[in-house]
Simulated scan of single mutants.
Amino acid sequence: MNKAQATQFMTTFYRDVMSRFALDQLDNYLTVDYTQTTNGHQFNTDQVKQHLANLHANLDRLVFSYFNDVVFDETTQTITVAYQLTATQHNGHQALAEVISIFTFADNKLARCHELIIPLMQDDRSFIDLATRITTK
């Protein structure tokens, strides 16, 4: 995979799965042994699926900016993306965050993610808590 292909893959992944919550599409994007670390919390594939279902249950919308920065290493098949995210909860509360994610590809799918989510609104921890929770409360 080259940088253009990896960037297109990520754009489609974010559109289909993250913005549209098309959880039935996850297997098209993630390897069976996919792992993710978000703000120090580790998830396996099943936990990621639960986590995304939790986001879908608790949010009306997730809006992603275009990737502000994209760095791709062809040798390691690793892409780093930085972007802003606006999450709107069912109660109307909005949270704004900056996200830096490092993804590793294997067999043209995502095998690993390490990400940091930084709240941009003062004293707003609600989305960060939601972003690292697997089950609904």
Rank of each mutant, 00 (worst) to 15 (best):
E74V: 04
G40I: 05
V48T: 15
V70Y: 02
F105M: 02
T38K: 02
Q42I: 14
H90I: 04
F72L: 01
H51T: 07
F43L: 12
A53C: 04
R112H: 15
N44Q: 08
E74L: 06
F43V: 07
T80C: 05
D46V: 05
F43E: 12
A111L: 01
S101I: 05
N39D: 14
Y66I: 12
S101L: 05
N91L: 06
C113E: 13
I102N: 14
F64N: 06
N108G: 05
D69Q: 10
V71Q: 09
A82I: 13
N108H: 07
H114Q: 14
F67W: 08
T80D: 05
D73W: 04
Q50A: 13
Q42R: 12
N44F: 07
H51W: 09
N44G: 07
T80Y: 01
D60E: 15
H51F: 08
A57S: 14
V70P: 02
T38N: 08
F103V: 03
H56L: 09
F43D: 11
H93T: 05
F105Q: 01
L52G: 07
V99S: 09
T80K: 06
L55W: 06
T76I: 11
L110T: 05
E74M: 04
L52M: 15
A95R: 03
Y83I: 04
A97V: 10
V63M: 12
A82R: 13
L96W: 06
T45K: 13
T38R: 03
F72N: 01
N108M: 04
H114S: 10
L85A: 05
G92L: 14
C113I: 11
T45M: 11
H41W: 05
N68T: 14
V63L: 12
T76R: 13
V71R: 11
N58Y: 03
T76E: 15
Y83F: 12
N68F: 11
N44I: 07
S65W: 02
A97N: 12
N68C: 09
D107N: 01
H41M: 10
H56P: 00
F43G: 09
N108C: 04
H114L: 10
S101E: 15
H114M: 08
I100V: 15
D46N: 08
N44S: 08
A111W: 00
D73N: 15
T80W: 03
F67I: 10
A106L: 00
L62N: 08
Q77I: 02
E98N: 12
Q47K: 13
I79F: 01
I79M: 03
E74I: 04
Q89Y: 03
F105D: 02
V71H: 06
G40Q: 06
V99L: 09
T104L: 00
D73V: 05
H41K: 13
A82F: 02
I102T: 14
D73H: 09
A95K: 01
F43A: 10
I100Y: 10
A57E: 11
V81M: 09
T76W: 08
A53R: 09
